[in-house]
Design a protein around this nucleic acid. Structure first.
Length: 884
RNA sequence: GGGAGAUUAGCUCAGCUGGUUCAGAGCAUCUGCCUUACAAGCAGAGGGUCACUGGUUCGAACCCAGUAUCUCCCA
């Protein structure tokens, strides 16, 4: 059968994925082996696979596959989260297209639509992960809104409420007028934008309303004139000379004609604007704080949907941004505008709907964070939970030490409904069911005759369910002593993006200690953000992200996986370029062709193993073991791209370029000689070991070749093959070959410079007294295509020379040798060595160096000196010979 | 405004506790090759004032201070 010259992944990948599934290689159940567990960061149920997922899940799959090969019981739990805001927005839009308004539906009807939507589209992203090769235990797939997981969320809410950790309160929240819900601080994206700064004059009056004698107005600066109608004070700095005389005076709000006090507070930045700030406690967090401090009236002039409310008194029902323009014009006409400046400021946008966030006072549920977060802070500081890279520890610490209470309610239907039950007077109890609530209510309010309570309309934040993920995927709430949770928890590694270090990772650690008394995972590997060439984050909205599935279809999953991991050190951004995938594809092809070579060998079972091949085998064995140790060490440090690069070079350079060339049989009269059986079988063994090292990165091609290179039984798959065991490294052999390779490279270099074809045989002479490198001479002879290697005492006539270490080599040349060029070469070398020797001598003659440096450092300097002197002597001899 | 991090070859990155002939890797580039596994390849080569300015030290890419630029987080 003819083996194609290039590797074709598309035929291979689906076949093996199905084979792995059919043989249940991804499946995990508790047993006596050591567990190795990863819970997936559940992708958003509305999501489709993007480059960030690719990176993230490839890393998880690499870790899982390696652990599996190490004989651990590897369990990767997949699933999705319900993403309240995003999903509800999707469903609302879908209904709108059908002509159905959300407000016309009951909660139950709406949820029915939402679940239908989830059933239809919610699993897409998981199917896409399969194309990538993700070896998740799909039987364990979970969803944050499924019944058991939701029950856990409600139980946790009730528990925390009973512990006094959850409270209800009025707070300034980030209101998303499009989503009609509060969002957390972390879900607000601040963007720089161009704005206008309006300078507006307010009339000043005395307490009794009479005009002031001197000057009659104060000018404030604001970017939000539409909030003027909610102003309840004007604030200036107590030290500000311009305004000191206004103590006890009042300002009149335009249009509203309200009389509000001039207050004094050193919060004010005297430099900004006019140094006078209009105070709108209902619509700005800082103003709100001022309002609390100075006991100001709060007038909420903007309604939930972003239009002016009744309380505004003017422009009622009109959108806030329309009103901004309108009121500016009206103020202008009324003579209140002093000037308008262009400025840049930061405006908050909702991560989910992209609407401009409106700070708004509203009644929300909060989780107190001060006490509950303490163990989670300690765990990271004392290294019980490791962040990789550890530079994130600082960020984590800073956040956890300044943590705000967590606003956990959302004004949505898609999510777990808050288990709080109200009577018509606003009294409430927290309970799991209506029945429980009534019982509790009777106890708390024995005088009430009420027969039914109304459940809170809101749901909890999605993170309030996903923070339980590492516990709830193993049913650790429903059945805290079950076999799964006891076996798999705490999990080992979590792989996620730094963006959600706080809203998810920190909170999972908190929940872990609160509910299991244990960390949820040991290592948190924080990936970078995948960016395009211009440094922009790859996102659907920018349209700068290639479709991962197209990339897979075009290049194969193995090539894409490799491309993703080639340049992605933990925590650093990954500037993605399709050429990286090309490199992955080329590498696949290289491996494929190594296989073709091996498969093409004719094996002679009776032929004895030649010395050359025996040596080559010994060398490769040691080289492999040496690099295996490096790889294992790099894995332990989670340096994935370095693992990959090390393996890449081991395969390409050491195995293909050196080893295979050494053992490749000669051609005699146009026909390849057979290879001896021993070398052949050893080589197949090495190739298998290399495939194992590659498997976590390139699962498909390695599985394919695993089966093509040898006949194996059905269950003998590389996915479950044993990871190679570290073995002895013969340093002497490695050094000897390193030296031999240098000699070969020098000879090839000479060929290149002199334009001598690789086919033309050359001679090599080695100056004796040098080390006896003879066992490797045969190898050098073959790889450099030499007719002979001879030992000589003196430099032969008409020969080029080079030095490796302190050994001199000569290559006789039929061609004339440019003596001047040779002289210059020697002279340059000599000059370099002179300078080098000088610097070494300077060190050694420095008393302080000799006194302070470590003994081995000094010994090293001495050796450097000696080596340099020997070399210089040799070069001087050669120079002298040339001149004669 | 506050905090964190970064700056090393054309690009993307390593460089541990300051000391090995210490300035490295991959890609890209250049030169020569379609040599019987692979041109998605082979052989070889050239690229750097380690952002800048000072300091500490016998010795600095590495430690310290300042400056510049960039990124991220928070307000």
């Amino acid at each position: 059968m003819e083996i194609p010259k290039t590797y074709n992944p598309s035929a291979v990948e689906d076949k093996w994925y199905k084979y792995w599934l059919d043989n249940q290689f991804f499946k995990s159940t508790p047993d006596e082996r050591e567990p190795y567990t990863i819970v997936i960061p559940p992708p958003n149920v509305t999501g489709v696979l993007h480059m960030g997922h690719m990176l993230n899940n490839t890393i998880q799959d690499v870790l899982i596959r390696r652990a599996r090969m190490q004989g651990k019981n590897a369990c990767w739990v997949p699933g999705t989260d319900h993403a309240s805001i995003a999903t509800e927005a999707k469903v609302v839009n879908l209904l709108k297209e059908k002509g159905i308004k959300k407000t016309d539906l009951t909660r139950e009807e709406f949820l029915k639509y939402a679940f239908e939507w989830k059933e239809k589209y919610g699993g897409i992203i998981l199917e896409q992960l399969k194309k990538l090769g993700a070896s998740c235990d799909w039987d364990r797939t979970r969803f944050t809104m499924e019944e058991d997981m939701s029950e856990a969320v409600i139980d946790v809410f009730i528990d925390l409420f009973n512990k006094g950790q959850i409270y209800r309160g009025v707070r300034m929240v980030n209101w998303d007028p499009a989503g009609m819900t509060a969002v957390s601080d972390e879900e607000v994206i601040h963007k720089e934008s161009n704005a206008k700064l309006f300078y507006v004059s307010y009339k000043l009056v005395n307490e009794d309303g009479s005009a002031l004698a001197d000057g009659d107005s104060i000018t404030i600066a604001t970017t939000r004139p539409e909030t003027i109608l909610g102003d309840t004070a004007v604030c200036v700095h107590p030290e500000d000379e311009r305004y000191k005389h206004l103590k006890g005076k009042y300002a009149i709000i335009p249009f509203a004609a309200r009389k509000v006090p001039i207050i004094f507070d050193d919060y004010i930045d005297m430099e900004f604007g006019t140094g006078a700030l209009k105070v709108t406690p209902a619509h700005d967090i800082n103003d709100y704080n001022l309002g609390v401090k100075h006991k100001l009236e709060v007038i909420d002039t903007i309604a939930a949907n972003g239009t002016m409310s009744e309380a505004a008194g003017f422009y009622i029902g009109e959108d806030r941004f329309a009103v901004r323009k309108k009121i500016a014009k009206d103020l202008e006409e009324a003579g209140h505008i002093v000037k308008i400046e262009d400025i840049k400021n930061k405006v908050g946008y909702s991560e989910r709907t992209d609407a401009v966030i409106e700070p708004k006072l509203s009644m929300q549920w909060f989780l107190k964070m001060d006490k509950i977060s303490k163990p989670a802070l300690d765990a990271v500081l004392n290294g019980e939970v490791k962040l990789i890279p550890d530079k994130f520890v600082n960020t984590y610490k800073h956040w956890m030490e300044n943590v705000h209470d967590w606003c956990i309610s959302r004004q949505l239907w898609w999510g777990q409904q808050i288990p709080a039950w109200y009577d018509d007077k606003g009294n409430f109890v927290v309970a799991k069911t209506h029945q429980d609530a009534l019982v509790k209510y009777k106890t708390n309010y024995p005088d009430s005759t009420i027969l039914s309570l109304k459940q809170d309309e809101d749901v909890v934040d999605t993170w309030f369910s996903s923070w339980l993920w590492p516990i709830s995927v193993f049913d650790g709430f429903k059945d805290p002593e079950n076999a799964d949770i006891k076996y798999y928890y705490p999990t080992n590694d979590l792989v996620t993006a730094p963006e959600i270090l706080f809203f998810w990772v920190a909170r999972m650690i908190i929940a872990g200690y609160e509910y299991r008394g244990q960390k949820p995972f040991t290592n948190v590997y924080l990936t970078g953000i995948v960016r395009d060439k211009l440094g922009r984050k790859m996102s659907k909205s920018l349209g700068n992200s290639p479709d991962p599935l197209d990339l897979i279809a075009k290049n194969g999953a193995d090539a894409v996986r490799m491309g993703m991991l080639l340049t992605s050190p933990a925590g650093n951004d990954l500037p993605f370029d399709e050429s990286l995938i090309e490199q992955g594809r080329n590498f696949n092809n290289k491996i494929w062709n190594a296989f073709r070579l091996l498969k093409g060998f004719e094996v002679d079972e009776n032929k004895a193993q030649p010395e050359n091949n025996k040596l080559a085998c010994t060398w490769f064995q040691s080289r492999f073991n040496q690099q295996l140790a490096v790889v294992n060490d790099l894995y332990s440090k989670y340096r994935m791209s370095e693992v990959l690069m090390t393996t890449y070079k081991l395969v390409w350079d050491d195995f293909c370029a050196w080893y295979l060339e050494m053992i490749k049989p000669d051609f005699v009269e146009g026909k390849a000689m057979p290879i001896d059986a021993k070398t052949y079988h050893q080589t197949i063994g090495y190739f298998g070991n290399l495939l194992k090292l590659l498997h976590p990165f390139m699962p498909f091609i390695t599985e394919e070749l695993w089966h093509l290179i040898e006949d194996r039984k059905d269950n003998n798959c590389i996915i479950v093959a044993q990871w190679p065991v570290e073995a002895i490294i013969d340093e002497e052999i490695l050094d000897g070959f390193a030296h031999a390779f240098e000699v070969i490279q020098q000879i090839r270099n000479i060929r290149n410079q002199k334009g001598i074809s690789p086919k033309e045989q050359l001679q090599l002479m080695i100056k004796t007294s040098a080390i006896d490198n003879s066992p490797l001479n045969a190898i050098i002879q073959k790889s450099a295509n030499l007719s002979s290697i001879a030992l000589v005492n003196d430099k032969p006539q008409a020969a080029l020379n080079f030095m490796i270490g302190t050994v001199e080599y000569f290559v006789p040349m039929a061609q004339s040798i440019d003596i001047d060029a040779e002289k210059i070469k020697y002279q340059e070398e000599l000059n370099y060595l002179k300078g080098f020797l000088e610097s070494v001598n300077k060190k050694l003659s420095n008393e302080k160096f000799v006194a302070n440096a470590k003994p081995e450092v000094i010994a090293n300097e001495r050796k450097k000196m000696e080596d340099a002197e020997t070399k210089m002597k040799l070069i001087e001899e050669q120079l002298a010979a040339l001149i004669n």
